[in-house]
């Protein structure tokens, strides 16, 4: 039986601006099952980033239902949302968003600090993950001492540290060259094969082609939602 890890129905999001209420998302309905690999596409201003923020529990919908793992987030308070971001969801950003003053090891283990793990356990887990993304020799380097592709690997390791069910990646390859992009995408593919649900926002078709399902936003609505033929061919 397929487990629907994300269920969204009748979702609206308005922004209050000086000019008045501005609707960003209008009646979005979407179901994503566990283990899926979804690319969200669309031009800028189409609402895909706002949608991503709501998926990631960083923002709340104005109206409509969002169930994460069968639990409606409407009923959750700030601390419970923070716990979801900490344990259930892993974020990967376009700008990597590492803490520049901290070592790679500390960056990766930061979510564990908020999960209340001991220092020893944190270091052990982080070391393992950094080795997994191929950065085992840079444990004590600072983010400005490594390349962009390596930084993004650190960010992915950080997203994985609490063994999340879902990875949300917002333009993860936007700041990387095509070769490095491929490396990062193949890392996502590996993770997806391990059973993690992956949702990527992108506007590049090459990147979207790695996903098994492609969703297109336009003016705050989903206008296209299909299985990716190429994905079936490649994998």
């Amino acid at each position: 039986m397929i487990n629907n890890v994300i269920e969204i129905s009748g979702l609206y999001k308005d922004y209050d601006t000086v000019a008045g209420v501005f609707p960003v998302l209008k009646d979005v309905n979407l179901t994503i099952s566990e283990g899926d690999y979804v690319a969200i596409m669309g031009p800028s201003g189409s609402g895909k980033s706002t949608f991503m923020n709501i998926l990631g529990c960083l923002d709340r919908p104005t109206q409509g239902e969002y169930k994460l793992d069968h639990q409606s987030i409407k009923s959750l308070n700030g601390n419970e949302l923070a716990k979801l971001r900490n344990k259930t969801i892993g974020f990967v950003f376009q700008g990597f968003n590492l803490l520049s003053r901290s070592t790679l090891l500390d960056n990766v283990s930061l979510p564990l600090v908020y999960a209340n793990d001991s220092k020893m356990l944190r270091d052990e887990k982080s070391k393992k993950l950094l080795e997994k993304v191929g950065l085992g020799q840079y444990l004590n380097s600072k983010p400005n001492q490594i390349s962009g592709g390596q930084e993004q690997r650190v960010a992915i390791a950080r997203a994985l540290i609490n063994q999340p069910r879902i990875i949300l990646a917002d333009e993860p390859t936007g700041n990387l060259d095509s070769k490095t992009s491929e490396e990062i995408m193949s890392l996502f593919n590996t993770l997806n094969k391990e059973g993690i649900t992956i949702i990527i926002v992108t506007h590049e078709n090459d990147i979207a082609d790695h996903a098994s399902r492609q969703i297109r936003f336009l003016d705050g609505r989903i206008v296209d939602d299909r299985r990716n033929q190429k994905f079936e061919e490649i994998y």
Binding site: G56, N79, A82, R85, F91, L99, P111, Y114, N162
Partner: peptide, 14 residues
């Protein structure tokens, strides 16, 4: 920005 990152990876208000 650092505060935003921390919140995104699970820091609570407190």
């Amino acid at each position: 920005r650092e505060i935003g990152i921390r919140m995104a990876i699970g820091a609570r208000e407190k």
